[in-house]
Simulated scan of single mutants.
Amino acid sequence: MSEVKFSEDHEWIVVDGDIGTVGITEFAQEQLGDVVFVEVPEEGKELEQGDEAAVVESVKAASEVLAICDGEVIEGNEALADEPSLVNSAPMGEGWFYKVKISDPSQLDELMDADAYKTFIEGQG
């Protein structure tokens, strides 16, 4: 299985070749509470690292999901429109947000591995 990488904005990416699948972390969905709406990016949208890629709304707040790397969206998870609670029940699985064709793989070097992310969120408490 591909290694999962994490951003300080609580997004994750799993890379397979030049394609990355992106979602929000378990920690992020716990902070949000019950997710009631998700807007994923459309296929073909060009993303730049740090720009808004998607929107997630919960009973507590609305949040932006930031682009974890530069690239072109090749698929948005349409299942989230009908069932936004997938973000809560399976944030690292069926609750993914979008798939991106990565244009600058070196940006992934800035991300944390699972151990570094765990240490990072322990410092958030």
Score class of each variant (00 low, 15 high):
residue 100 V to P: 00
residue 35 V to C: 05
residue 95 G to A: 05
residue 62 A to N: 09
residue 96 W to T: 01
residue 71 G to A: 10
residue 13 I to D: 00
residue 83 E to W: 02
residue 8 E to R: 12
residue 106 S to V: 15
residue 6 F to R: 03
residue 16 D to C: 05
residue 12 W to H: 08
residue 89 S to H: 08
residue 11 E to Y: 05
residue 84 P to I: 10
residue 28 A to W: 05
residue 37 F to A: 14
residue 102 I to T: 02
residue 59 V to N: 06
residue 49 Q to Y: 07
residue 43 E to K: 15
residue 49 Q to W: 08
residue 30 E to F: 07
residue 46 E to A: 14
residue 39 E to K: 08
residue 76 G to S: 05
residue 90 A to G: 14
residue 125 G to S: 14
residue 53 A to F: 07
residue 5 K to I: 08
residue 1 M to N: 12
residue 84 P to K: 01
residue 72 E to M: 06
residue 39 E to F: 07
residue 40 V to M: 02
residue 37 F to Y: 15
residue 57 E to A: 13
residue 98 Y to F: 15
residue 122 E to P: 03
residue 24 I to H: 04
residue 101 K to R: 15
residue 110 E to K: 13
residue 33 G to W: 07
residue 96 W to K: 00
residue 5 K to M: 08
residue 99 K to W: 04
residue 120 F to Y: 14
residue 109 D to K: 12
residue 19 I to N: 01
residue 64 E to F: 10
residue 98 Y to D: 02
residue 107 Q to M: 06
residue 41 P to K: 03
residue 4 V to M: 15
residue 66 L to D: 04
residue 87 V to D: 00
residue 58 S to F: 06
residue 17 G to D: 14
residue 32 L to W: 04
residue 1 M to T: 15
residue 97 F to W: 02
residue 115 D to P: 04
residue 28 A to I: 13
residue 115 D to G: 13
residue 35 V to W: 03
residue 2 S to N: 11
residue 99 K to V: 13
residue 10 H to P: 08
residue 111 L to S: 05
residue 34 D to N: 13
residue 29 Q to C: 11
residue 7 S to F: 07
residue 121 I to V: 15
residue 10 H to L: 11
residue 14 V to R: 10
residue 14 V to M: 11
residue 43 E to C: 13
residue 120 F to S: 03
residue 80 L to H: 01
residue 8 E to H: 12
